[in-house]
Computed example of a mutant assay.
Amino acid sequence: MPVKNRFAELQAEITAWRRDLHENPELLFDTHRTSGVVADKLRAFGCDEVVEGIGRTGVVGVIKGKTQSSGKVIGLRADMDALPITENTGVEYASKTPGAMHACGHDGHTAMLLGAAKYLSETRNFDGTVVVIFQPAEEGGGGGKVMCDDGMMDRWGIQEVYGMHNWPGQPLGSFAIRPGAFFAATDVFEVTIEGRGGHAAKPHETIDPTVTSATIVTALQSIASRNADPVSQIVVSITSFVTSSQAFNVIPARVTLRGTVRTLSAENRDLAEERISQLCTGIASAYNCSAKVDYTRNYPVMVNHDEQTAFAAEVAREVSGDCADAPLIMGGEDFAFMLEERPGAYILVGNGDTAMVHSPEYNFNDEAIPAGCSWWAGLAERRMPAA
């Protein structure tokens, strides 16, 4: 099953959809235009059911095969939201929305799944039901969890679920996947260190939270180097250091630190949260300051299920001739919530030699469309072969 000829025929049309979405990016749950475009196209394709408003602005389409004797139902998910980044690609279809752009390729993901939905609605060459899932708010809003919390999996009886992401630097149209932990848990924390401010010429009359905070920043790196197993993966990064005074001659009374933690196991996630609290409060106390730690668990580790991963790789090899072993990725992905609800797998499709995602110069490569659409369609036809 190489790239399907139908997707070569549809590539120009799907590309036009993708570029329209690229021109009109929307953030988080505010995907009203995008969701409307998706729903209208699914209805035009002849989907058996189209429901809007799942997970606030998510869209679900149902496509029944020629027969349903297998009783199988698989979900195929694409994300729709953009990022709060100012575009710097120079393409003629660049974002028309100030301060927002499709810098992660969700426009491409949505367009490819729409292409697959059109094909599957035309052919219906499978025995079972395909549920196409278009999700808002992957970029920090947890839209996948919100759709699950809305009862999506049970409402449509979804038994397995599959997702895909483009990947710059990977050969165009190729695939890569791995079983087990794949994308990291993405937690955030904020630490407020309180001291006593004063004149910088008289530090002995102050309790300096700046020195305290600098010590904390350094000490937090010991979590990865001295607390976690050296062969495990854990990242603790301070990304913001803000004092309550910006004057050159004033020692501030307060410092706020913000950061992120990336882990690939529940054990390291617990370890990081515990040690951040211990180090911050302990060091602050030693320097006569106080520390308040707010730790928030965001996306969990995204874990591919073994059997579904092997199947997804098999379909990928049929499309492109190969499926590589993907690396561990310390970025987050809220498809993790769907994989906690149902067995499934997440795969990478190569975007070629392009700027990395989340860059102002990034752009989805439209030449990846036939491979991505073929993989989506192949999942349905191979998992639920026509009776």
Rank of each mutant, 00 (worst) to 15 (best):
A224S: 13
D306Y: 12
N125H: 13
S213M: 06
G115C: 10
A82F: 05
V211I: 15
N24M: 02
R383H: 03
A312Y: 01
G75L: 05
E190D: 14
I223W: 12
G331M: 10
T263D: 06
E23N: 01
A44M: 09
L42R: 13
M152W: 01
F248M: 12
R6Q: 13
P209D: 11
E49G: 07
C47F: 08
I276G: 04
Q233C: 13
K66C: 01
G321N: 04
A324I: 00
I251P: 04
A253C: 12
R77H: 05
R19Q: 12
L114Q: 10
A78N: 06
S240H: 14
G65H: 08
A184G: 08
E9P: 00
G378P: 00
A312D: 02
I234H: 10
N365P: 05
M152Q: 00
A345T: 08
G75S: 07
G180W: 08
S237R: 07
W17R: 04
Q221H: 12
S174W: 05
A272H: 06
E361F: 13
K41D: 01
E205Y: 07
A103P: 02
C373V: 03
I74D: 01
A39K: 08
L10I: 03
R297C: 09
A214M: 11
M164H: 10
N268H: 06
T192N: 10
S277F: 05
F29N: 02
P168I: 05
G163Q: 12
N24D: 01
D306M: 09
S70T: 13
R226G: 11
G169S: 06
